[in-house]
Structures are given as structure tokens and as C-alpha cells.
């Protein structure tokens, strides 16, 4: 399969301005991220809060401008596009947001919410809008009878379905899913995940799935990128691959299984994710890592993939 998305050395640096009482600081939210997303695959990006996964999603759709690097979508260099060209392209790359409560205008009926992408893109559907909206609502498992309801009249899970219907309206090829189930109850999360699986097969979609939940990512994705403080520290080529980076192993061990027989003595990682501002040199994980050596504190390990299983660690497992 050809690559639908090629990301090369993508970086985003934010800086907070200094003032009379404060030094200027800078943070590398996303630092040199590269990967290929072949058509029809699902890549999961997993990491804890502040690891840069949502920033990465926004950079890929060019909702924010990268500091450096390149993104190619279907062979087109996105960063060379003018805003008008970009808008046209966005019809083919859509995003589903974490919080369906704030992603839909509360004053819009569901019809208007789902029809909004057509309006924005200046596209006229081939058939009457009402029919188009009804089909989209059905596609995401909503009763078309809800078309004239307002967001406050439906549940959180239904709102997320509307969010997905909006994203699908213009028949995109790539969906970037930014924690699409994080604000939902587990029973509803499972519904939405099932729906996304069905849509993927029916419509031949390609997904970039962002989540903090490793067991969900393992269930849903073909490949997994593990991020820590802006960098990809490991790229698992398939979900059965054992962890080679100590951080990935910790993530796996911190994820409980819903089975009391698999109870284990957790040896939790010390400390927490450090502040991303002005990181010290070396591996960002060194301070929490049980096998850190002097080398880890001076030299940042590069993501190397001799075996097709890339890991950024001086002492991989």
C-alpha cells in the first residue's frame, strides 16, 4: 500500500515570552517525529498527558504551523500549500475531537452541524441536503429522526457520533482521532470503537488514533508509536511486539487487566513526567529509568530501527 501520510522530522517549539520578572522559556512539544502511515492502516500514538500527542495531531493537519519538518499527504507537501489550497485538501483529512460537547455549536441542530462541512467547503452534495444528512446520521448509528434535535438533547455518546458524522461528511481518506472516547463511559466507549472499526472496513479509511490508553490502542491499532516528552521513544511494528524501551514496558506494566487472576505486584515507576520546559540534555526519561547510565544523561538516543522495530534507547531491553 502506498503511504497516505509521510511525516518527516516534525517539530514544534512553543516559547513563553520573558518579562521583567521572568526568563523566557521554550518547550519542544513535538521533537523530530517521523513516521509513515500507509493507506488503510491504523497507527496509534500513545503517551501520558503532555507528551505532545495532541500537538502532533494538529501539526499533521496543519491546524498549527510546525517549527520545522515536513508532512506529505498523498504525495503532496502540505507545508507548501497556500491557505486556500490547504482548505480544499482538508476535505480529505478530518479530525474527531476528544470533547464532543465543545466540538459542536450548541445552537446548531444536528442537521446543521452535519451539513456545516459542506457549507465551509462550498460543496453541494449530489442529492438534497436532508437526504445526505439522514444517510450520514444512519452511517454512524443515529436515528435520522434526531436530525432536528439540538446537542443538549442527546447523550455524550450520541454527540461523539455526530462528531464522527461531521468528519465523514466530505468522504475523507484520513481520520485523525484525538482521544475520541476519553470523555465517555466504558460501555459507550466500546460502542464508538466498534463503530469506528466498521466504518474503517466499509469506507476504506486510514486512521491516526491518539490515546493515553495503551490497552485500547493495542486493541484498535496495527502499529503503535509511544511518545514521551515530545519524542517518539519506540515504534512497535505490531501490537504483539514486546517492549524494547523501558518507558514502554512501564506503560504496559501500569495498565491493569480486567482479571483478578492476573493481579500483579506493581513496582511503579518513581517520579512523574518532568516539566517540558528547558529539558536537560540526554534522554528525557533518564531520571525515571531504572537502567539509566551516564551516557543517557549526556547524549540523546536516536530512534534507530535495525530490526524494523525502532527504539530510542541506549540500553534497549
Amino acid at each position: 500500500m502506498p503511504n497516505l501520510l509521510e511525516v518527516r522530522d516534525l517539530s514544534k517549539r512553543f516559547s513563553s515570552g520573558g518579562g521583567p520578572f521572568r526568563k523566557a522559556r521554550s518547550m519542544h512539544a513535538v521533537n523530530g517525529v517521523s513516521f509513515d502511515l500507509p493507506e488503510g492502516r491504523v497507527i496509534g500514538v500513545v503517551g501520558e498527558s503532555g507528551c505532545g500527542k495532541s500537538t502532533l495531531a494538529r501539526l499533521i493537519l496543519r491546524l498549527i504551523e510546525p517549527s520545522s519538518g515536513a508532512v506529505a499527504f498523498d504525495g503532496d507537501d502540505l507545508l507548501a500549500k497556500t491557505p486556500a489550497q490547504m482548505r480544499k485538501l482538508r476535505a480529505r483529512m478530518q479530525m474527531v475531537f476528544q470533547d464532543p460537547y465543545s466540538a459542536i455549536d450548541p445552537r446548531y441542530t444536528l442537521t446543521r452541524a452535519v451539513a456545516e462541512p459542506f457549507e465551509v467547503q462550498g460543496v453541494k452534495p449530489a442529492r438534497p441536503m436532508a437526504e445526505e444528512v439522514a444517510e450520514l446520521l444512519e452511517m454512524v448509528g443515529l436515528n435520522p429522526g434526531l436530525a432536528s434535535s439540538y446537542p443538549h438533547q442527546i447523550s455524550g455518546g450520541q454527540k461523539q457520533r455526530v462528531g464522527i458524522a461531521r468528519a465523514l461528511a466530505l468522504r475523507p481518506s484520513l481520520l485523525v482521532l484525538d482521544e475520541p472516547t476519553a470523555s465517555l463511559d466504558v460501555s459507550v466507549q466500546a460502542q464508538i470503537i466498534g463503530l469506528l472499526e466498521d466504518l474503517r472496513t466499509e469506507l476504506g479509511l486510514t486512521y491516526l488514533f491518539i490515546s493515553h490508553d495503551l490497552s485500547l490502542v493495542k486493541y484498535f491499532c496495527d502499529e503503535i508509536l509511544v511518545m514521551y516528552l515530545g519524542r517518539v521513544v519506540e515504534a512497535l511494528p505490531d501490537t504483539a511486539a514486546p517492549a524494547r524501551h523501558p518507558y514502554t514496558r512501564t506503560l504496559m506494566e501500569s495498565t491493569f487487566e480486567p482479571d483478578p487472576k492476573k493481579r500483579r505486584l506493581i513496582a511503579p515507576l518513581e517520579g512523574e513526567v518532568p516539566s517540558p520546559f528547558d529539558l536537560p540534555p540526554g534522554c528525557a526519561f533518564a531520571d525515571r529509568c531504572p537502567q539509566a547510565s551516564a551516557l543517557c544523561r549526556t547524549e540523546t538516543p536516536a530512534l534507530s530501527s535495525e530490526t524494523g522495530h525502532a527504539v530510542a534507547c541506549h540500553h534497549p531491553l
Binding site: S187, V188, I192, L214
Partner: peptide, 24 residues
């Protein structure tokens, strides 16, 4: 039963997640 079946179990289990129809 449904609540337990809603949780992905990683690799040991490939059973499809279906969720529970409707809402709380």
C-alpha cells in the same frame, strides 16, 4: 457481563468490543 466485555484485554483476547446498546 457487558461491563467486563467492554474493556479491551490487549493481546490475549481478540473478541470484538461491542459496548452496550443505548445509554445510562
Amino acid at each position: 457481563q457487558a461491563l467486563i466485555a467492554c474493556i479491551p484485554r490487549g493481546l490475549d483476547d481478540t473478541a470484538r468490543l461491542t459496548g452496550i446498546e443505548g445509554t445510562v
